[in-house]
């Protein structure tokens, strides 16, 4: 089960991210996870929100260009080698990781959640689940 990530275009100038968070705050959207990717003159904010639809509507109305991207969310043990194990499985499946970021597990168990985009979502997901890793659904996260 993939999770819907909101990707937002941000021009690289002061105050752009602030405008984005202001819109989300105004509509009562809580961000579960956030990652920023940038080039020299623009960036992309990647967001997992508790209310994806509400967030999308608010952003579009405010004039942002945003789209939804399917990403995977897997819980990993909060200990040395936790991420390494996950990546080992993805490597064995011969899948390329495009980007990755993390947030706290919503279960309050002090475990970490890795959110990532891969070239082949389905193959990675089955491989990870087959090895007993815990994937999170949109509702869980």
């Amino acid at each position: 089960m993939s999770v819907k990530q909101i990707s937002v275009f941000l021009e690289n100038k002061p105050g752009m991210l602030n405008q984005l968070t202001a819109e989300l705050a105004k509509s009562g959207v809580n961000m579960r996870a956030l990652s920023l990717a940038e080039t020299k003159d623009f960036g992309i904010a990647r967001i997992i929100a508790d209310d994806t639809l509400g967030a999308m509507n608010a952003l579009k109305e405010a004039g942002f260009v945003a789209s939804l991207t399917p990403v995977l969310a897997f819980e990993i043990p909060n200990e040395a080698g936790g991420l390494n194990k996950l990546l080992g499985i993805i490597t064995d499946a011969n899948v390329n990781v495009e980007y990755m970021y993390s947030c706290l597990s919503p279960r309050g168990n002090s475990e970490a959640v890795m959110i990532f985009r891969v070239a082949n979502t389905q193959a990675s997901e089955s491989a990870l689940q087959a090895r007993g890793l815990w994937s999170l659904t949109q509702e869980e996260i």
């Binding site: 990707s7 275009f9 990647r46 260009v65 945003a66 789209s67």
Partner: peptide, 15 residues
Amino acid sequence: EMTPEMFTDNLGDIA
């Protein structure tokens, strides 16, 4: 100006 049609989640594609 960036438009929804142009935008993708992939920095490389936009570049």
